[in-house]
């Protein structure tokens, strides 16, 4: 497996845009809250592009000299991110790892910076509940009863500057995961689809870098949800002999319980929202392992009843 160490890659300013639903959840003080899912535009897709542009516009006021934007979203052909990028005079590279896109973008940027190919870049991701529903499930207004194991795609966009200039958050190492398929065909049960990938990447990361799980103050997973987190813990203790203690799942804590959004939130934006607006702001943890998990299904293969592969990319952050 591909694990790598970085010596001079840091995270600078971040910016988060969310909808009211996320703003009413567990985490407060997002940078920008949009009033409705249309965000003043005619389509949901347009609204998602606008959210991404607000993030990029803000980050460019922090540092104008950006060499590259790397990012992605859930839409087919990464249309949202690509349309967003067309507004800027900056090189752009699309990246798709479903809900693990944020980490794959950061790993791409960090590798380029470490190799002295570029100096600064922006990693961005977004998801929009209505855009995802339209593409992966039913028409927006169609009332299909939801299963308890299903997750709710979060609406928002989050971006961060990855740079070689010293800041207080260092990207210390990363592991690129394998595509893992354990025979699960149920696209509603994404926690069960993704947990084996998370377990595999975590164990490979620890093996490659010769570390014990106690090295990390916190393991932050992306959007396994309430049930996926439990599956991960059992998998780790049974198959890998790892006892996961300091664990937070971003998807499980983004919304409040009273919001009754099934097993929690999903979507590539869930993880960075929790990472930047809660974990890093609290300043409680020094060494954080961020495991972004993604379910790599397409509607076509779900219809063909094929088992779903999943991916998990890890980055290790050090708060200096």
């Amino acid at each position: 497996m591909a694990s790598m160490k970085f010596n001079k890659v840091y995270l600078d300013s971040s910016y988060s845009v969310v909808s009211k639903l996320e703003a009413n959840g567990n985490i407060k003080n997002y940078d920008y809250v949009i009033d409705d899912y249309y965000f003043g535009l005619k389509t949901f897709e347009g609204a998602e592009i606008k959210m991404q542009r607000i993030v990029i516009d803000y980050l460019l006021t922090k540092n104008k000299n950006m060499d590259l934007i790397v990012g992605g979203d859930l839409s087919n052909q990464l249309a949202i991110t690509s349309y967003m990028a067309s507004k800027y005079d900056i090189s752009y590279l699309g990246s798709y790892s479903a809900c693990a896109t944020f980490n794959s973008s950061i790993i791409t940027l960090a590798s380029l910076i470490e190799a002295n190919k570029i100096k600064n870049g922006i990693a961005i991701t977004s998801s929009h509940n209505k855009v995802a529903e339209r593409q992966f499930r039913y028409p927006i207004e169609y009332g299909a009863p939801k299963a308890k194991r299903s997750t709710y795609t979060a609406t928002g966009s989050c971006g961060v500057i990855v740079t070689k200039n010293n800041t207080n958050i260092k990207i210390e190492s990363a592991t690129i995961g394998k595509s893992i398929e354990m025979g699960i065909k149920d696209s509603m049960h994404m926690g069960a689809v993704m947990a084996p990938a998370a377990a595999n990447t975590l164990s490979e990361h620890l093996n490659d870098l010769k570390r014990d799980i106690s090295y990390y103050d916190l393991v932050l997973t992306g959007d396994l949800g309430i049930y996926g987190s439990k599956i991960l813990k059992e998998l780790l203790s049974k198959d890998y002999n790892i006892k996961l203690k300091n664990h937070i799942d971003a998807g499980s804590i983004l919304y409040k319980k009273e919001q009754e959004l099934y097993a929690g939130s999903s979507g590539p934006v869930s993880l960075p929202l929790v990472l930047f607006n809660k974990i890093l702001k609290e300043k409680k943890y020094k060494k954080i392992l961020v495991l972004a998990t993604g379910s790599l299904h397409s509607q076509m293969f779900v219809n063909q009843h094929k088992p779903i592969p999943a991916i998990c990319h890890a980055i290790s952050l050090e708060v200096l």
Binding site: A192, Y227, I231, E234
Partner: peptide
């Protein structure tokens, strides 16, 4: 694995 996740499927 399929057996195991049944336990965690509401």
């Amino acid at each position: 694995y399929k057996k195991m996740i049944k336990k965690y499927t509401p």
